[in-house]
Design a protein around this nucleic acid. Structure first.
Length: 306
DNA sequence: ACCTGTCAAGTCTGG
DNA sequence: CCAGACTTGACAGGT
């Protein structure tokens, strides 16, 4: 079992892979100035991403989520005509190769604004464009389709059945590459694990099971003993199964992520996964302290073994 | 060096 | 119909 963290590294100084700019600022610049600004940010984000991978290698961290903001304003109209994939071909490849050579499994997560099942055509169109950006990004790194992209199902719009149908229908319009990469996650408010599982099974794609979201949002008749074997089954042929784990911030603010991971709850969940299946898996930790929380959890677990 | 208002994006709730 | 919450780090400009 391997632990992973998302995007930001707190141990490394001046190493954000998320440098960005605003449309308002860009529009004050000449066309040439805009290009320079975007190129500078992308170059730095790729360099910092590589630094983070090197940190991961040095600390034996084998699982990491790339930021979706490495390419600033990637699908915004201000970036139309900016051929960054050609310009930074080598840099993209360098990052992808480093991950592969050092057996660091990477993934991505489309943002909360990527909503494939929206009842608005323009939102669906932009969401498809955003997903295809993730695909082009990973293809530029020459990472195969076991490098996954996480997506939530989206909104409900007062009719969940229709919203789910729209999700499935719009999924079919995606390119083969992103279809092979997409994994769908149960969320904390709208779509339960059972609902996401049904979609995943029908589309033949994996579900990334989030235990914290399950605790926030589940129906009475759902139980882990029945769900987890089905979760593992969706991963057949898709690489190592991936799970999300986070500790609630507090009783009053249950849905938010805490700074660190509670080792006792974590161990309990992992033991349950190990009881469910012999298949090895990855766990993405979602918490404020990122890599620091991962290293702390590892220490806590080792201590408890003694 | 530090502080503050602002930022591409969607959905949902409550007034 | 509209404002604010959600969640939230980082930028740009000002002090």
């Amino acid at each position: 079992m391997e632990l992973g963290y998302a995007c930001i590294n707190l141990n490394l100084k001046d190493c954000t892979p998320n440098r960005r700019t605003t449309v308002g600022y860009l529009k004050k610049l000449s066309l040439e100035g805009q290009k320079i600004k975007l190129n500078t940010l992308l170059k730095e984000n790729l360099e910092n991403t590589l630094r983070i991978l090197k940190f991961n290698k040095a600390h034996d961290i084998k699982f990491y989520r790339f930021s979706s903001n490495i390419v600033p304003l990637a699908t915004h109209e201000v970036s139309d005509g900016w051929s960054y994939l050609d310009k930074f071909k080598e840099e993209f490849l360098k990052v992808g190769n480093y991950a592969k050579e050092n057996e660091i499994r990477v993934s991505m997560h489309a943002s909360q604004y990527t909503i494939l099942n929206s009842n608005r055509k323009d939102v669906v169109k932009r969401s498809i464009e955003e997903l295809e950006y993730h695909s082009r990004f990973l293809l530029a790194m020459e990472l195969d389709t076991t490098t996954k992209v996480v997506l939530h199902i989206g909104g409900v719009y007062g009719n969940k059945d229709k919203a789910i149908s729209r999700f499935k229908k719009n999924f079919e319009t995606l390119s083969e590459d992103i279809k092979d990469r997409l994994i769908i996650e149960n969320d904390d408010k709208s779509y339960t694990a059972t609902e996401v599982l049904e979609i995943a099974e029908e589309l033949g794609i994996p579900i990334v099971f989030d235990i914290h979201h399950f605790n926030c949002n589940h129906s009475e008749d759902e139980n882990l003993e029945e769900l987890l074997p089905r979760v593992f089954a969706t991963w057949k042929g898709h690489g190592k199964p991936k799970f999300h784990f986070s500790t609630p911030r507090s009783e009053d603010d249950y849905a938010s992520h805490a700074d660190n991971i509670d080792p006792k709850d974590f161990k309990e969940f992992v033991d349950l996964l190990k009881d469910t299946s012999d298949i090895d898996f990855d766990v993405m930790l979602e918490c404020k302290n990122k890599d620091k929380a991962l290293l702390k959890l590892r220490e806590d677990l080792e201590k408890s073994m003694v």
